[in-house]
């Protein structure tokens, strides 16, 4: 009997947490199909009484959200590709080569992880101003082209490649560039997938730096556009619900498709971290 009560309590707890987690998303999505009148009415229901897709049409047509969506998508993809490549190359050199200062360099890179973003972002703004890169995409991409976290993760991953395998290829006459592209990158694909997923989501989440750097509205990223939209049309709740859905729902779908990699990635990074 006691066992049974315990089990019911457990299941109740889990269900409660589950509802808590998902309710904001359900509410957002259902509200995005409601009219402004219904959103503001006193009687609320999760199912739209007057189902409409006008809000989506509105933000996509009049406010260019498709454009922002594509900007964000390309930006996140590009950052992901670049950091995978640089992290693996740096991880390979730091993990497999022996040379003077290697450990020092690696320690310095790790130390940069503890520098709060708010410290470096102020001078970085001036550096970009000095370079004349403000309102260009290179201002977004170049400062994100290496990541300490990625280098750390890929360096750990290179330990799984046996030295004998690399030496055998070297004896067969492979140079290091060939070795890196044809052996190291393919061997590390599991770690690369994990890194890519996180990197993509982080880039999708970027807000302050793109907000500071990009002046031309057409070049804006989704998260920045969301804030601009809110500033201007703060009473058009229905459209804002549609706009946030456009920013969130694709991420949820992406997450559900790759969920196995997420949990593995989080668990393994906590073990090493």
């Amino acid at each position: 009997m006691k066992q049974k009560v315990y089990s019911v309590v457990l299941k109740g707890t889990l269900l409660f947490f589950g509802l808590l987690t998902i309710l904001p998303f359900v509410w957002m999505l259902s509200s995005s199909f409601k009219t402004n009148i219904e959103i503001r009415s006193n009687v609320q229901s999760f199912i739209p009484q007057q189902f409409t897709i006008q809000n989506y049409a509105n933000v996509l047509e009049h406010f260019n959200f498709l454009r922002y969506f594509i900007n964000s998508l390309l930006y996140a993809l590009l950052i992901t590709l670049i950091t995978i490549y640089t992290s693996t190359a740096a991880g390979f050199v730091l993990g497999k080569y022996r040379f003077k200062g290697r450990q020092l360099l690696f320690t310095c890179i790790l130390l940069t992880m503890m520098v709060p973003g708010i410290v470096t972002i102020i001078p970085r703004y001036s550096i970009m101003q000095f370079l004349g890169w403000i309102d260009t995409y290179q201002a977004l991409i170049v400062p994100s082209s290496f990541t300490a976290f990625g280098i750390f993760m890929m360096r750990q991953a290179t330990f799984s490649i046996p030295d004998e395998m690399l030496d055998a290829a070297r004896i067969d006459g492979a140079n290091e560039f060939y070795l890196f592209h044809r052996i190291v990158l393919p061997q590390l694909r599991n770690s690369i997938v994990s890194l890519a997923i996180f990197q993509f989501l982080w880039a999708w989440d970027d807000y302050l730096w793109p907000y500071l750097m990009i002046r031309t509205e057409k070049k804006s990223l989704l998260s920045v556009a969301l804030n601009l939209f809110n500033g201007r049309y703060s009473t058009d709740y229905a459209s804002l619900f549609a706009a946030t859905s456009i920013a969130i729902i694709p991420v949820i779908i992406f997450y559900l498709v790759f969920q196995k990699h997420f949990i593995e990635g989080v668990s393994s990074s906590s073990i090493t971290g």
């Binding site: 998303f25 999708w204 989440d205 804002l240 559900l256």
Partner: peptide
């Protein structure tokens, strides 16, 4: 359940903050 609970962690902060701004709205 694990997948479900981890869901909010991966969603973008700015967008999620907007949703919560409405969740806290005193009127609706």
């Amino acid at each position: 359940y694990r997948t479900l609970y981890y869901l909010p962690t991966i969603t973008p902060m700015v967008a999620v903050a907007f949703v919560w701004k409405f969740i806290f709205d005193p009127q609706f």
